[in-house]
């Protein structure tokens, strides 16, 4: 939406569907992450570096939490379930791996706090960051409960891509400079290409035309991408089969054993990423 639209309809952006919020979507891109299949191998993360011109910041800055991994894999060691007699001596059930990318919240907490409307919701249901508009206040990143926004504290062009590494840079999106906030876009450049290709051939966009870099590379196909508005998409069916719905702060499932959940949905962020629970043999 244009700035004017954002300003005119400001309050709508804070509301979810149920409250009559902005629902004039053309698409609503979403994802599903199957933690039963994810091995935490990190391929998605490096694929994202390759696709999205993510800067390598180096050891010192990484230590300060300035790494730019739009797609990151978190690893948790779960506390042993003492009641079930689990070992306190070893992590007997391995680790819990959690790939985290921007959750593309429909009621994104990052959007209303931007003083210059550099972050907003697109008609594709994406939480957009307009780099050239960003002034680097960092309010958005402070307001993101998932910590999925990354700030360029420095200019990394020279240090991250010494020649000829810069020849690998993807021309379909900018290299962000110092003072700019950046984040996962669900590979919006690939969405653009798919739309342009479809329009060139006077065809409608078909489910499966778009594959973000992380989804493409996943060795276990734990990630699924698609349009949540298109009820026929593989993703929509997956959400439906796990009884996860948008616009809720709590899922009321007929079958409470279904694995689908959204991280922090109780915060009313209405994320577009569904996780499927990890499974363990008792």
């Amino acid at each position: 939406m244009s700035l004017q639209n954002v300003l005119t309809n400001w309050s709508q952006y804070r509301k979810t569907h149920e409250d009559g919020g902005f629902y004039d979507y053309e698409h609503m891109w979403g994802m599903s992450v199957d933690l039963n299949k994810c091995t935490g191998c990190n391929a998605c993360s490096v694929a994202c570096y390759a696709e999205n011109n993510l800067a390598v910041v180096g050891k010192e800055k990484f230590d300060k939490g300035q790494g730019m991994h739009w797609m990151r894999v978190e690893r948790y060691w779960d506390e042993p379930d003492l009641a079930a007699g689990e070992s306190t001596e070893f992590s007997e059930h391995g680790g819990s791996f959690l790939p985290m990318m921007c959750q593309q919240c429909n009621a994104a907490t990052c959007e209303p706090v931007c003083p210059v409307a550099a972050t907003y919701h697109t008609p594709d249901g994406l939480n957009a960051q307009v780099y050239n508009r960003c002034i680097g206040s960092r309010y958005c990143s402070n307001n993101c409960p998932y910590r999925l926004r990354y700030f360029n504290f420095y200019s990394y062009y020279e240090s991250s891509w010494p020649e000829p590494l810069n020849m690998q840079l993807n021309p379909d999106l900018s290299v962000r400079d110092k003072g700019v906030m950046e984040k996962c876009t669900f590979c919006v450049q690939r969405i653009r290409v798919a739309k342009d290709t479809a329009s060139r051939e006077n065809q409608a966009l078909v489910d499966g035309d778009i594959t973000p870099a992380c989804v493409q590379t996943c060795p276990t196909k734990a990630l699924v991408f698609g349009d949540l508005i298109n009820t026929e998409s593989k993703l929509s069916k997956l959400w439906a089969s796990h009884e996860v719905e948008l616009g809720k702060t709590e899922q009321h499932k007929k079958n409470k054993e279904k694995r689908g959940y959204r991280v922090f949905e109780e915060l009313n962020t209405d994320p577009c990423v569904m996780y499927l629970e990890r499974v363990k043999e008792v």
Binding site: S2, T122, D124, L126, A128, V130, Y131, R133, D172, V188
Partner: peptide
């Protein structure tokens, strides 16, 4: 289009 992301990348 007037959507920012139609023209900004």
């Amino acid at each position: 289009p007037s959507d920012c992301w139609a023209c900004h990348k």
